[in-house]
Design a protein around this nucleic acid. Structure first.
Lengths: 239, 239
DNA sequence: TCTCAAAAACCTGTATACCGGTACTCCGGT
DNA sequence: ACCGGAGTACCGGTATACAGGTTTTTGAGA
């Protein structure tokens, strides 16, 4: 059942300038997606094409395209003739996202270990170092970006673009959970140790160990899922 | 480098009526996607928003939305200010699609075997029976629909919607290869034996056997991939 | 006939206008 | 004070108009 638009106070849209040299829909999509997955726009918020267009000085047409992409990856719920709303966190989707990531990233890291690509090791080491630095500085946004760099490198260096696209959609759902948990309890640097284990296995060129380390890393999110389902929270969809 | 729009003769668009009670973009998307993956619109064809809109008596706006979705799953290539073209079959994407399907469908069939859901077995049995009938009748389109039903049931009965979405994107790429191979050499009923093996393992509730059978089934597509890369063909992107 | 530049004909990207439909408001009857 | 229904404001869906850019055409001049 759609929540009613009038029940909500004005949605806080992040300030951003749209560069006219690049395609507007892509930029609007990026801005909104970042804001949604970081919980800057809380789940349940009402958005409207006109409102967003006015905020970024573009017309409804590019906004509409951005909305369509966000709706396809389940970050928005569109109710025709009614309104568009940031989707609530759905534990069912979260469980599926964990599964997708485990399967696809497990394979990617296995292949990567077998390939023994020095450039990949180098890139991931750099991402890990930057990640540790961001965690030490307490910068959650930078930390998550480094986390993404670390994981994306696995796919990018082997040309697995489609697989990364699927992983990225799964990450979008999980990122909101992650932010929720980091906000509730300071679990910012939890991934660092796991990343070191993965990198170590990669350095040894051990596909089995790399796969196992990745499995442990991804499945660690399952504890969040349990906590999500047990406690009631306005951001979380209840069964 | 984009192929030039004027180099192509008028693209044959399938006849279809758009029902105004349902959303137009969805229907246009469905019609075009079916036509593209069945090779009714050959790879390399030029499409234009205006042309498609005129063909189905809708404006460019819903067509544009359909184009955006098709471009995202790599069935269209959009070149701004130039034209939009049905993408060539890319062997790299095909290899990735096979991998994605093997990983995700392998997991789904394992879970399904463990769940021992009689309704699932029933649905898949029916799909298999219809599939055999369509093959006997030589109806390629019906056969492929039954194939899809068989595989989709694995996900639908366990609520794995996101995983199916990823599999479906992979299938879109593979379906064109499949049609090409069936056209060149009558390999229409090749999947039937594999489906029976999968269903048998499911009936026994044996996750390992089910997983293995699915692995064999999906990897059978790899022989197509080799043939694709070795022979030159106007529908296939060359490295 | 050949060359080359101007202009017409396309394309997609963006803005704007209109439509049908839903939810909220508010006023009048009770 | 309560209830109901008409009016209104707002939303997304669609159509259309305009802008920026690339390709093809074309025709004037040599």
């Amino acid at each position: 059942m759609p929540r009613l638009a009038r029940d909500h106070q004005p949605t806080p849209l992040p300030a951003a300038a749209i560069d006219r040299t690049m395609r507007a829909p892509e930029q609007v999509y990026r801005v909104l997606r970042t804001a949604i997955v970081s919980l800057a726009i809380p789940p349940g918020s009402a958005l409207s094409e006109g409102e967003v267009g006015a905020a970024y000085a573009v017309s409804r047409t590019p906004v509409r395209e951005a909305f369509a992409r966000l709706a396809e990856e389940r970050l928005l719920d569109v109710f025709p003739n009614l309104g568009t709303f940031v989707s609530l966190i759905d534990p069912r989707l979260i469980g599926e996202a964990i599964l997708i990531r485990r399967l696809l990233e497990g394979e990617a890291v296995s292949q990567a270990a077998a390939s023994r690509d020095p450039a990949l090791i180098s890139e991931m080491s750099q991402a890990l170092a930057d990640h540790a630095e961001a965690v030490a500085a307490g910068d959650a946004a930078a930390a998550y970006q480094c986390d993404e760099r670390f994981h994306r490198a696995l796919f990018a260096h082997q040309g697995l673009d489609q697989m990364w696209a699927s992983v990225d959609r799964a990450r979008a759902q999980l990122e909101r959970v992650h932010h929720l948990m980091v906000a509730q309890r300071g679990a910012l640097g939890d991934a660092l140790a796991k990343h070191r284990a993965i990198l170590s296995a990669l350095g040894r060129g051990d596909p089995y160990a790399a796969h196992a380390a990745m499995h442990v890393h991804i499945e660690a999110n399952a504890v969040f899922l349990d906590r999500l389902a047990s406690h009631s929270h306005p951001f979380v969809r209840m069964p």
